[in-house]
Design a protein around this nucleic acid. Structure first.
Lengths: 165, 165
DNA sequence: CTAGCTGCAAACCTTTTGCATGCGC
DNA sequence: GCGCATGCAAAAGGTTTGCAGCTAG
């Protein structure tokens, strides 16, 4: 009975409609979960959240939906190590991620200087930049007084997996 | 009866000995394959190359060895998308990778400016940088007039997991 | 001699897929 | 009504692991 068609749609739900996707109940729920997410959930987490809103959703559907939305440019897949892909809504402008190696928390940041630098580097090598990936793995700075010494290693330290698993 | 003990060892084989690893026939072969590799082979490729030199090696051993060497800091694992981990010997100084999205070929490059920038960014966010990851996905710049039509064929199927657009 | 390797195959995990049924447009 | 979407479960990769036998040191 609601007159305003998309009024009840979530932000991502509206994007789906814009691109002519058929809006099933499941998709609506998944779209809403994604719209409300402020982190970078993996498929299992999305499934958990979606199942809370509507129990008749299967993981397979989450996988299929997430893949579809990625193809449509609505979502972006991330791989922060740990074996599972994580997703976030596509946003304006480039932003990158810093992963706290102790807590697994993700901090987003922007840096125009870096973006421009990438362009220049690709250029220098004779390529046109298509996309790029940048992730920082770091540890919260300890209080100025005490200096703990543990962050000397290179990549191998946390490349295995985060604090999970 | 060669006098110089490690003389016949490959570079990585020597590193294994330095760290006190037991040198079995399999490890010697794998170490040699790794030492001679100038690319970034995945486990299956390592297995293939190793099997050529000595048929009695199993994939399980390659996985186990590669994991061990990573823990010892001799190897570094890379994930260029495509679902399989790829390895390369740890080297001096930071270097990054540019992946040709058409051929899957990997070009290495260095950039001190970038490394310093990462440090500064982490700092700005209140973190100590532990490590970082940077990959460029790019396409060879079309030559103005030359007919440089050379297409790779073996690694073409690498887009399964990569950042696509 | 013994701690640690290895091969084999089964187990694991995440993601994909075949099929029959259901539902949006 | 048609055709795409979904559920379920099985399949598919890539990687790990339990176990019994073998080997480097």
């Amino acid at each position: 009975m609601v007159a305003a068609g998309d009024a009840m749609e979530s932000r991502i739900g509206r994007m789906c409609i814009e691109r002519g996707l058929k809006m099933t109940g499941q998709r609506r729920v998944i779209a809403r979960v994604l719209s409300e997410a402020e982190d970078h959930p993996d498929v299992e987490e999305l499934y958990r959240r979606a199942a809370t809103l509507d129990a008749r959703i299967s993981v397979a559907t989450v996988y299929r939906t997430v893949r579809l939305l990625e193809e449509k440019g609505i979502l972006e897949r991330r791989d922060f190590g740990g074996g599972r892909a994580r997703y976030e809504a596509t946003e304006e402008g480039d932003h990158y991620h810093l992963i706290d190696v102790d807590t697994g928390k993700v901090v987003e940041f922007e840096d125009a200087e870096h973006t421009a630098l990438m362009q220049r580097i690709a250029e220098r090598l004779g390529f046109d930049l298509v996309s790029h990936r940048l992730e920082l793995f770091a540890r919260r700075k300890p209080a100025p007084a005490a200096a703990d010494g543990k962050a000397g290693q290179k990549t191998a330290a946390e490349s295995r997996n985060g604090p999970r698993r």
